[in-house]
Each structure stands twice: as C-alpha cells, then as structure tokens.
Amino acid sequence: MLFCHADGKSLSILLEPLGKFQNWFGLKMNHAKSNIFFGGISKEDIDKLRDIAKIDEGKLPIRYLGVPLVSIELSIDDCQPLIEKILGSELNYNKTKVAWDVVCLPKDKGGLVIMRSSDWNKAAILRHLWNLANKDKYSIWVEWTYKVLLKGKNVWEIDIPNDCSWCWRDILKLRDVARKHIRVDIGNGENCSLWFESWHHLGPIARRWPASNSQALLELKNSVLNPPRGGEDKVILGNGVHGTFSIKKAWDTTRRRNSKVDWYNIVWYHHHIPKHAILVWVAILGIIQDATCRLCNSATESLDHLFFSCSFTNEIWSRLMRRCSLNPAQGD
C-alpha cells in the first residue's frame, strides 16, 4: 500500500520507481488487480489522476478475493463472493485432481503430509479408550465412567446404549479400530480382561474361542507366546513396547499406510523450491496430461525444446547475447 499527495506531481514521483523496477526485473504491476483511492478532492481532479495512474478507482472497504478486510466479524454475505469463486473454480471438489487419500499421505509415501481432521479427531478419541483400558486411577473422568456409564463392566464388551450422549457413542464406535492398535502386555493380569482385551497376538479371545477339547483349542493354548512377566499390566499402543500414549503416535499408527515411493528424493530434496516441487509431484502422479509447451504452444515440451528450440527461449537468448555483445555460433 502506497500513499502520496493528491496531485499529479506526487503521483508521478510515486509511479516512477515502479516503472524502473519493471525495466530492471521484468516484474510488472497488475493494473487490473490494483486500485487507487482518493479523499478530499473534486471529481475533476480524480479523473485527471486516474488518467495518469491508469488504475481504476477503488471503493471502501478494501477487499481481497472478494472478502472485505475489516476488523469486525465477517458475515456469510461478506464471504459469499469467495465461496462462489471456490465452487466455480478448479478447487471444486467435483473437479479434484488428486484424491484426498493420496494428499494426506506422508511425502515419502507419495503425498503432501496434510493431516485429515477426521483422522486427527480419531486419534484424539483413542486417548479416551486408552485411559479406560489403562484404568487410570488418577483420572476423575475414568473413575466416573466406570461407575456411572460402564457400571463395573468392561469397556470392550458393552453394547452402545440408545440413549447415550454423542461423545460417548463416538468413543464406543471407535473400539473396533482401537482393538487393532491397543494391546495389553500381561503383568499380573489383575487389570486385564481375559475375554475382551487384546492381550493375545491374535486379538480378543472372546471372538475366537473354539469348541472344548478341540484341536483348535490346543493350538490356541500353544499360541500363547509369552508367559505373564509379573508386575502391573501395561497397555501398549501399536508396535511399541512402552506404555505411553500421544495423539501424534496414535495418528501415525491408525492412518492409511502406503509403500515408500522411489521418486521421493527427486521431488523433495533438501533445497527444493516448493512451487517447482508441487509441479513435479503433480506431473509424476500423471495429472498433467497435456505435454504442449506453455511458452510457445506449438511443440511438445522437453528439455531441449525448453532451453533451445522454443521461440520464446530463442528470444531470451538473443536479447542476452546482444547485451553481452556476443554473436551466435553458426548453426546455433
């Protein structure tokens, strides 16, 4: 934002450095996206200054992407222009170029490591199941839940009540996910349910208990890999060995898995330029289908074409050589 007096001389002084900057660096001010504001002068003076600046007069409040830049709370009507631009552009979900599941993967797995809010929320809810499985005696919420909601039953065995709160319902719904990632390392067995908790490497025994005196029962008995170690039972998340919990670890444990891509270092090397890396990432995923050169629109884009054969590139080389007083070699 630039300020000056409302007269032709001051305005010319203000615009002169912008012209020099354009000549030096080739970066030109976009007049279509610029506005000029006036105050305390006549309509005749405004018209004269607009002719000098060649910029349209703006109106307050100043807007960016159609949204007013004000300090007060924005209404839905204020944001409507931005919403319409999003819904009418390539950002429309109906025109998504890359699947959201791919975008949310880590970079070394082919994604952009954007964390999906639903996955992060799932990891946060897992903390409640972890605390219940751990029977945290220092948590008032755990004590209250066992006495009021569970009424002495195991959190893994109860059905979802029809009249429970939405938050308790969400916690219970996540038990199938939690069973795959939360297990118990048996110590003295006092705080672990033999039937319903995942102390066995195959999962809860209640879900796979075979008929009595059967070969399957004998195999299940022999599959108990480690005898109780003594001491307190330890609740473990994922493949770890320590009885600690973090939402980040829960997210990493439960998120979608994918194999490491072999082009990771080509795109995301140490000093990569983000804009260029994104373009290469999109190209590797096969999103860019048109290989036509965007500079001349007349040939297939390749390294030789971009640096030597393109008419746009030839013009740049010619100007550079003239400034350096060099003559092109014959045939070049």
Rank of each mutant, 00 (worst) to 15 (best):
H5G: 02
L14I: 06
L14M: 13
L18V: 05
G19R: 09
K20S: 11
F25D: 01
L27K: 10
H31L: 06
K33T: 10
S34F: 03
N35A: 06
N35F: 04
I36H: 07
I36G: 04
G40A: 15
G40Q: 13
I41R: 02
E44N: 06
I46P: 00
I46M: 10
E57P: 00
P61W: 15
Y64F: 04
V70H: 02
S75Y: 01
Q80F: 05
P81D: 15
G88F: 00
L91W: 13
Y93G: 01
Y93V: 08
D101F: 01
D101T: 03
D101C: 03
V102D: 07
K107E: 04
V113H: 11
R116S: 08
S117T: 10
S117V: 14
A123G: 14
A123K: 07
I125Y: 15
R127H: 12
H128K: 14
L129Q: 11
W130A: 10
N131K: 15
I140A: 04
I140N: 09
W141C: 13
W141R: 12
W144H: 04
L149T: 01
L150T: 14
K151D: 09
V155W: 08
D159V: 11
P161Y: 00
P161C: 00
N162T: 00
N162R: 03
C164T: 14
C167N: 13
R169F: 09
D170N: 13
R175M: 11
R175T: 11
H181L: 02
I182M: 07
D185T: 03
I186E: 07
N188K: 06
E190S: 12
E190T: 13
N191L: 10
S198L: 06
W199C: 05
H200R: 14
H201N: 05
P204L: 01
P204T: 01
P204N: 05
P210I: 08
Q215D: 09
A216Y: 09
L217I: 12
K221F: 08
N222W: 08
N222M: 11
V224P: 07
V224H: 04
N226I: 05
E232W: 01
V235L: 14
L237I: 12
N239C: 07
G240D: 15
G240E: 15
V241R: 12
H242T: 15
H242C: 10
G243Q: 10
T244K: 14
S246R: 07
S246D: 06
I247N: 12
A250Q: 07
R257H: 08
R257C: 11
W263M: 05
V267G: 06
W268E: 02
H270T: 12
K275S: 04
A283V: 01
I284Y: 05
Q289N: 14
T292W: 00
C293Q: 02
R294T: 15
R294F: 14
C296I: 12
N297P: 03
S298Y: 06
T300G: 07
E301W: 00
L303V: 07
D304H: 08
D304T: 03
F307G: 07
N314M: 01
S318Q: 15
L320E: 06
R322C: 08
R323F: 10
R323D: 10
A329W: 12
